[in-house]
């Protein structure tokens, strides 16, 4: 059933087809403007409009929008400063953009019929790889080979190092995986659960009067899970931003 299929909401379809390359030669690339692209653009537009509205008045005593924008600003700024220090504040626009993008994309996904950008692993993986490459590039640019001290914890006796260093390297390399899969999995699982429960409402409602009564239970569950998913949407954006700040801290201060 299309109405209750939990996977259908993740399907990507073209809005403005842009196809590059030759299909016959096997190098075809589909760069179409899809529903996913549309919601990426909508996310950017919503966040930009929000920040623009909050910054438009620039009054000494803030109004509601300005206060909300300033709260978002200082929230991210405090988070970054507490984990990466003042030197990490040069990444503030980056962390704020990541946090805002993930948060707005997650929250937009909570609207019925809206596409959730972050429910696709390629998007979260791209964001996580962006974070890790910024960490690696800035770390080597700022500290040179000393950045490799990150993998050698201070105060560890020499004979354990052959065990500790590979573990540190593996844990560093697994960061982008866990960072992307955490966000992707949470959003995907939440949306599937939501769709499954709301599907129960539809299929039970088709059974007649008794079914309507029985449909009340999954309906209540759907409402509760919607609230939980709103929390998850915000918390996952927060976790993504906090972990980004902590990884950036490694780039700024590699010897921990």
């Amino acid at each position: 059933m299309a109405g209750t299929d939990p996977i259908h909401q993740f399907v990507i379809y073209d809005l403005f087809p842009i196809h590059i390359g030759d299909e016959a030669a096997g190098n075809a690339l589909n760069l179409s403007f899809t529903n996913s692209s549309l919601f990426m653009v909508v996310t950017v537009a919503v966040l930009t409009a929000f920040m623009a509205m909050s910054a438009s008045k620039a009054s000494m005593v803030p109004g509601r929008f300005q206060l909300a924008g300033e709260l978002a600003y200082s929230f991210v700024a405090n988070m970054l400063r507490s984990s990466a220090g003042t030197e990490g504040m040069k990444f503030f626009p980056f962390v704020f953009s990541l946090f805002g993008f993930v948060l707005v994309a997650n929250l937009l996904g909570m609207f019925p019929y809206f596409f959730t950008v972050t429910s696709h692993i390629i998007v979260t993986a791209a964001l996580a790889l962006l974070v890790i490459s910024v960490v690696i590039l800035y770390g080597f640019f700022r500290h040179g080979p000393k950045f490799l001290k990150l993998f050698v914890p201070a105060g560890v006796p020499g004979y354990v190092l052959p065990i500790v260093v590979p573990i540190e390297i593996i844990s560093f390399l697994s960061r982008p995986i866990s960072l992307s899969v955490r966000l992707f999995g949470n959003i995907l699982a939440g949306h599937i659960t939501l769709k499954v429960f709301s599907g129960f409402v539809v299929s039970l409602g088709a059974l007649g009067a008794l079914g309507w009564l029985g449909a009340l239970l999954p309906l209540i569950m759907t409402v509760a899970i919607t609230a939980l998913e709103l929390l998850v949407a915000v918390v996952q954006a927060y976790v993504f931003a906090v972990l980004t700040s902590m990884y950036l801290n490694d780039a700024v201060h590699p010897s921990h």
Binding site: T34, S37, F94, L127
Partner: peptide, 28 residues
């Protein structure tokens, strides 16, 4: 769907980063 998503993510995230870092955040 990966190429299209990556392309549009790059475009929109770059736009967001520029808008935030050059306009919105300095103002706020």
């Amino acid at each position: 769907t990966f190429p299209s998503q990556l392309l549009w993510l790059a475009i929109s995230f770059a736009a967001l980063y520029l808008l935030m870092s050059k306009v919105a955040l300095p103002k706020v």
